[in-house]
């Protein structure tokens, strides 16, 4: 096998590892909510991506979209039956009062970007 082919195979293998590590190996730090509201920036995803909230406590999630991507314009929290349009550079407050423990994902309109709410 020629050197270039060896390089492609090794490079391909390393690239696969990189893709795996880069996209799937990301450690998602949970943001523990202290007060009753949290600011979430919408820019290529949701930041903070994982939020821990308390069971039964009303929490205000303030979303501000700074990313003009169409997909992110719509915000869906299916477990809380909430759907909102996020106008660019405007704060949109979403209030939730979790009634059961667990992990609940929310996402953009096409389900490409995800965030998570942990209810403890």
């Amino acid at each position: 096998m020629s050197t270039d082919k060896m390089v492609v195979i090794i490079g391909g293998f390393l690239s696969i590892l990189f893709v795996f590590w880069f996209f799937l190996g990301k450690k998602r730090k949970s943001f523990k909510l202290e007060g009753s509201s949290v600011e979430i920036t919408v820019d290529g995803g949701y930041s903070p991506e994982v939020i821990s909230v308390s069971l039964g406590k009303t929490t205000q999630l303030n979303f501000t979209r700074v990313d003009p991507t169409d997909c992110l314009e719509e915000l869906v929290l299916p477990d809380f039956k909430i759907k909102r349009t996020l106008p660019l550079n405007q704060k949109v407050a979403v209030e939730i009062t979790p009634t059961k423990k667990g992990q609940f994902t929310y996402h953009c309109g096409m389900n490409m970007y995800h965030g998570r709410i942990i209810v403890e």
Partner: peptide
């Protein structure tokens, strides 16, 4: 590009 750059910064992959 506009949609990919922030997504990659966030280590998220989308169709863009």
């Amino acid at each position: 590009y506009r949609a990919s750059i922030p997504a990659l910064k966030n280590r998220t992959a989308n169709m863009d």
